[in-house]
Nucleic acid binder design. Structure first.
Lengths: 334, 334
DNA sequence: CCTGCCCGGGTAATCGTTTACTCACGACGT
DNA sequence: ACGTCGTGAGTAAACGATTACCCGGGCAGG
C-alpha cells in the first residue's frame, strides 16, 4: 500500500511537500503540486487516516451510542446526526447499546480509546458513567434522556407535558379508566411519561388506579404480556384506554388487544408515543405523540460540533416539544 | 491525558514492560505486572487506540455500508452483524449510503483511509466500484445485492424465487390482473423481483401486461404516487392484485389504496417483501415475503471475519431463502 | 552593493504504541 | 569450571502522517 514517501520519491520531492501539496495548507509551487498529484494518482495513494489522526491528535469521527437500532425513533435521530456530520466532513460511528449498561460501558471505552471527537449518547440508565469521557475533555451530549450526574449538554423532548396532553386527550374523548404502559423504572423517559400520565389524570379529575399501570421493557414482547394481563382485569377492573410509552411497545399491546378480540378506538382507546409511517394504516389508525426525532439529531450534532470547536461554552439544555396526532384509535365513536 | 510512558515512569519500568504487562503477551514478573496495573489505574490510563492501530497495522473495526438506515430490513441485518462482531471484540461502523452512489463512494474512501479490517456492503448499484478496497487487500462482502464486477463473497436471498412464489400465491388466490411495484432499474434486488414476478405469471399462465408494472424509488413517497397511477387505470385496466418489492414502498402503496377507498384483500390483493412487526396489525393484515435479515447479518459477519484471518479462501456465494407468510391482504374472500 | 525579509521547500522531530534486538544473569549440563 | 541456554526486562526502531524549524536564494530598499 503506497505511503507518502512513495509519492514523494516518485514526484522527486520531500514528504513535507507532498503533505503540503495534498492538504493545500501552505503555498506550494503549482508545478510541484501538479507533479505530486500526478504521482499520487499513479500510485493510487490514499493517506493513512490512522497516522494522520495520531499526529493531529484528533479524529473527524463522532460516536452515536443509542439504546436500540431497531427503534425507528433512534434511526430517524441517527439520520439527523448523520446529515449534519456528513456536511462538515465528519463520520458517524453508530453503536447499539441495546438497553444494556454493560455494552454501553464498552462502547464508551472504545470511544475514549479511539479518541473520537465527541459522543452523542442516549443513556440506558441514570447511572450511566461518562466520567471517562468528560475527564479527558471529550464533549458528550445526552440525547432523548438526561444524564443527571454530569454537566453535559442535552437535547430532550418535553415528554412529561406530551404525556399529560395525550392523557387529557383520552379523557376528553370520554374514556374514564385510562391506563399506562411504560418502560422500566430508572429510564428517565419511562418515568417522565408516567409522571405526565398522572398529571393528565389529575387535570382531568380522574382517579388514579395503580392497577391500571404496568411497566415492561421498551420492547414488543414485554408489552404484549403486560397488556394481556391488563385486559384480563387482573387486580381490578380493566382499562378502557391506554397511554403507551413507545412504538415497539405499542405493537405488542396492539397484538394483545387484537388477540383479545377487541378493537382500538371503539373498544379501547390507544395513544402511543412515536409516530411511524405505518401508524395510519393500522386498524384503527393509531393516535400518536410524534417526537421530532430527526430534528433532535440535527440539533444534537450541531451542538456537539460547536463544542468540539469551543470547549469552553457552558452546558445548555434544549427541549423540543412533541405533537399529538389524533387518529381513530382514540375515538370511541368512529 | 496519561500515556504509556507516564505509566512506565510511575511504575519505575520501561514502556515495553508496561505494554507487555497490560497486553499479557509475553511473560512478565507478577510483581511488576502488579505495579504496572496499579500505576495505570491511578493515572486512569487508557491506551491510545490510534497509536496502537498504527503500529499493529490493523484495526478491530468493520464497516457496514447500507443503503438505508430507516429500512427495518437493514437495521435487522445490522443487528446480526453487530452481535457476531461484538462477540469477538470487533466494533461496527454503520454507514448510511442512502441509495446514493456519491455518499457510498465517500464511505468506501473513508473505509480505506481508516484501514478498517473489512467491509460489508449492500451496493447502491451494480456500478459500485470496490477496487479501492480489493486492491489493498481489504476483504469486502456484498450483502443483499451482488457485486457483479468483483470476485467478492456475497450473501444473498433467493429473491427471484421468492417473488415467483408470491406471484403464484396471488394467482392461486384467484387474482388475475396481478401488477408489480418494484425499485429502480439497475438495483439487482429490484430487477430480480421483477423477473421473479414474470416467472410467476408465466407459471400461472397469466398474460403479462406491461401497464401493470411500475418502478419507483425504494421509498414510500414514490410508491404512493405510482400506486395512485395504477389505481386510476392509466394506460389500461387497473390491477386486482399487487406484488410490492419492499417494506417502505408497501406503506406508500397502502396509503394510496386507502385513499382510493379500497381495502386490501377483498378489493385488491397485496403481497409485500419484508416482514415487519406491524404487518399483522394493518387493515387487512399484510401478506409478506419474510427475508432472513438478521441471519444474513450474522452469516455475512462470520464470513468477513473468516476472511480477515485467512485472505486466501476462494470467494463463496451464500444464498438464503425467503418465506411467504400469507395473511389477509392476499385473501379475496375473507 | 549590502542588508534584511520573504518565500518555497527540505530535514527531522513528533504523536503513542508495539516489538525486534540486545543484554544481563542465573541455572544447567558436561 | 565453563559454555550454553532460557528468561525477563530495557533500548530503540518502527508505523505514516504533520509540522516546527531551518536554509538558501531572490528581491527591494537604503
Amino acid at each position: 500500500m503506497a505511503t507518502i514517501s512513495d509519492v514523494a520519491a516518485r514526484a522527486g520531492v520531500s514528504t513535507a511537500t507532498v503533505s503540503r501539496a495534498l492538504n493545500g495548507k501552505s503555498s506550494v509551487d503549482p508545478a510541484l503540486v501538479q507533479r505530486v498529484v500526478q504521482a499520487a494518482r499513479e500510485l493510487g495513494y490514499q493517506p493513512n487516516g490512522l497516522a494522520r489522526n495520531l499526529r493531529r491528535q484528533e479524529t473527524a469521527v463522532i460516536a452515536l451510542i443509542i439504546s436500540d437500532v431497531e427503534n425507528p425513533f433512534f434511526t430517524a435521530l441517527a439520520r439527523g446526526v448523520e446529515d449534519v456530520a456528513q456536511a462538515v466532513g465528519y463520520s458517524v460511528v453508530l453503536c447499539n447499546a441495546d438497553e444494556n449498561g454493560e455494552k454501553e460501558r464498552r462502547y464508551i471505552d472504545v470511544a475514549v480509546q479511539e479518541r473520537v471527537a465527541g459522543v452523542l449518547l442516549s443513556p440506558t440508565s441514570t447511572a450511566t458513567d461518562v466520567r471517562a469521557l468528560t475527564e479527558r475533555g471529550t464533549p458528550v451530549i445526552a440525547v432523548d434522556r438526561p444524564l443527571p450526574h454530569a454537566a453535559t449538554d442535552s437535547v430532550l423532548v418535553d415528554t412529561r407535558a406530551a404525556a399529560r396532553e395525550a392523557t387529557v386527550h383520552l379523557a376528553e374523548q370520554g374514556y374514564t379508566r385510562i391506563g399506562c404502559l411504560t418502560g422500566p423504572s430508572g429510564i428517565p423517559t419511562a418515568d417522565e411519561r408516567l409522571a405526565g400520565y398522572r398529571d393528565g389524570l389529575r387535570s382531568a379529575r380522574l382517579r388514579r388506579d395503580p392497577s391500571l399501570v404496568r411497566r415492561a421493557e421498551f420492547r414488543a414482547a414485554g408489552a404484549r404480556a403486560a397488556m394481556t394481563e391488563l385486559l384480563a382485569g387482573e387486580g381490578g377492573e380493566r382499562p378502557d384506554a391506554l397511554l403507551i410509552a413507545n412504538n415497539a411497545m405499542a405493537i405488542g399491546a396492539l397484538v394483545a388487544i387484537s388477540e383479545a378480540g377487541l378493537r382500538p378506538g371503539t373498544d379501547i382507546g390507544v395513544v402511543s408515543f412515536d409516530d411511524a409511517p405505518w401508524a395510519p394504516l393500522i386498524d384503527r389508525p393509531l393516535t400518536v405523540v410524534a417526537q421530532p426525532a430527526y430534528e433532535m439529531g440535527t440539533v444534537a450534532a450541531q451542538l456537539l460540533l460547536a463544542r468540539v470547536n469551543d470547549s469552553s461554552r457552558a452546558p445548555t439544555q434544549t427541549t423540543l416539544s412533541a405533537r399529538l396526532i389524533p387518529r381513530a384509535s382514540s375515538n370511541p365513536t368512529a
